[in-house]
Design a protein around this nucleic acid. Structure first.
Lengths: 234, 234
DNA sequence: TATTGAATTTTGTGATCACATTATGACAAT
DNA sequence: ATTGTCATAATGTGATCACAAAATTCAATA
C-alpha cells in the first residue's frame, strides 16, 4: 500500500483546516492522483495533510456530496470507478449545463471580462507549447469558469464543477497517455461569440469545444484508457 | 430567538448520527421550517438533534455542498434568501435537468416501474384531497424521482435533488399561502408518455408540469410571497 | 494447496475539551 | 437618540480519546 501524498499548497490566511484539506484532496482527485476503487482512510489523509481526523472528515463529506467521492456500504470512501456509460452521461451533462450557463452569462458579461478570458486563452496556448498539461487543464477550467460566473446568479456553476470533478480522474489518465488532447479547441470561436453577445453561437461553440475535446473519446478509446490505467472492470 | 425544532423521525438501523442529522435538517429546510437569513448554530442543532456538535458539522458541510445552506464570511451558516432572479434560474435548471434525466430514463424503465409511478400519482391525489400539502409535496418528488432513477446511472439525480432543496424553503412558503398549488398537474400525460416510451412527449410533459406548477409564479407573485413570508429584500 | 476461524490491528464514528474569533449587551460620551 | 468602547457570552474550529465495527493476519484444519 502506497502512502497518499498531497501536493504542497500555500494556505491562504483565514482559510480553515477543513477547507484547506478539501482543496488539496480536490486537486489530487482532479489530476487522477488517487486511484479509483482503493479505500481512502481518514487517518491516512490526516497524516498526509498534517492535521487531525476531524477536519478531514468534513472535507470528505463535502467531496462525497460533490460526487467526487463515493461512500460504500462498508463506510469506506473511494474515488468512483469510471465506466463507458458513466463517462457518456457525464459528457452529456457537461454539455447541457455548460451550454445553459453560457447562455445565461451572455447578458451579463463585460468587455473587460472578455479581455480577461482571452488572456487566459493565450496562457493556455503557452502552457500547451511548454508541455505543461496539468497547468493547461486547470487554465482551461478557469477559461470556462470565467465565462459562466459572469452571471452573478450562476446557479449551475456548482454543478458544472461537480461534473469536472467527476471527470477529473479519467482526465488525469487521458493526459498521461494521450499526446494531443489540447491541440485543438474552439476557444477563439467562443471568444468571438462572446464579443458579439451571440448566445446561440456561443452555445454551439461550447458544445463543439467539449465534443472535440474530452467528449471525443469513443467507446473503444475509453475502454483502452481504462485498461491502461489498470482499472479493473466493475 | 426561537429554538430550532426538528421533526421526530425514526432512525433506520445502521444509519450514522451525521446521516440522521443530515436527513432531519434536510427535511426541515425542504418544508421551509428554517427561515432564510437567520444563523444556524452548531450547538443549537446538536441540542435539537440530541447529539454532539461533531456529526452536526458533517451534516452542515454536506448541506452547504448541496446548495441548501450558505456559509457566510463570518462563518455563520444560513438558509439562502430567495430572490426573483435566483428563483428563475432554479426553475430553468430544474426544467433542463429533469427533461434530460427523463429522456435518459425512457430506455431503462420497466412496465412494473411505471405501475409503481402511477400508484404514487394516485396517492398524490388522495393527499391533495385530504389537504395534506406536505405529504403531497414529498410524494410529488417521489413521483419524479422514480422516473429519473430508472436509469441506473442517473448522474443528474443529485443535481435535481439539489435544485429541489434550494426551492424547498420557497415552496414551504408557497404552500402556506397558496391554496391551489397542486390542483393541476401533467402526471397522467407523463405516465402516458412513459408507457409509449416516447422521450420527447415525456420531456414536453415534464416541462409543462414544472411550468404550470411551481414554475408558474410570476415576478409579482414571487415578490408578494416573499413579502408575506417576512423576508427582507437583501 | 485451499479454507476456515480466531486473534489482532486498523478504521470509522461520536463525544468532549480547549482555544481563538465573533457576536452581544451594558454603559458612557457626544 | 446615536455612536463608540469594553466586558461578557456565544460560537466555530480542531485535537484528542474511547468504543464498536470492519479488515487483516496467521495458524490450524481439510
Amino acid at each position: 500500500m502506497t502512502q497518499l501524498v498531497l501536493r504542497a499548497m500555500n494556505r491562504p490566511e483565514g482559510m480553515t483546516t477543513h477547507e484547506f484539506a478539501h482543496r488539496r484532496l480536490r486537486q489530487a482527485i482532479m489530476v487522477g492522483a488517487i486511484p479509483p476503487g482503493v479505500a481512502l482512510t481518514i487517518r491516512g489523509i490526516a497524516a498526509a495533510a498534517e492535521t487531525s481526523p476531524t477536519p478531514v472528515r468534513e472535507a470528505l463529506r463535502r467531496l462525497s456530496s460533490e460526487g467526487a467521492l463515493q461512500v460504500l456500504d462498508n463506510r469506506r470512501i473511494v474515488v468512483p470507478k469510471m465506466t463507458v456509460e458513466r463517462f457518456g452521461e457525464l459528457i452529456a451533462l457537461r454539455t447541457l449545463l455548460e451550454q445553459h450557463a453560457a447562455r445565461q452569462a451572455v447578458a451579463h458579461i463585460t468587455e473587460r471580462q472578455i479581455d480577461q478570458i482571452a488572456e487566459i486563452d493565450s496562457e493556455i496556448d503557452t502552457a500547451i507549447r511548454a508541455g505543461e498539461k496539468e497547468t493547461a487543464l486547470l487554465l482551461n477550467q478557469q477559461f470556462h469558469r470565467l465565462i459562466y460566473t459572469a452571471n452573478p446568479e450562476a446557479m449551475a456553476m456548482p454543478m458544472v464543477e461537480s461534473v469536472w470533478l467527476q471527470l477529473g480522474p479519467f482526465l488525469g489518465i487521458a493526459m498521461q497517455h494521450v499526446e494531443e488532447l489540447y491541440v485543438i479547441d474552439r476557444h477563439q470561436e467562443i471568444i468571438d461569440a462572446l464579443r458579439k453577445r451571440d448566445a446561440e453561437a456561443l452555445a454551439d461553440a461550447i458544445a463543439a469545444d467539449i465534443r472535440e475535446g474530452i467528449g471525443g473519446f469513443g467507446r473503444q478509446a475509453i475502454e483502452n484508457l481504462l485498461r491502461l490505467a489498470g482499472q479493473k472492470p466493475g
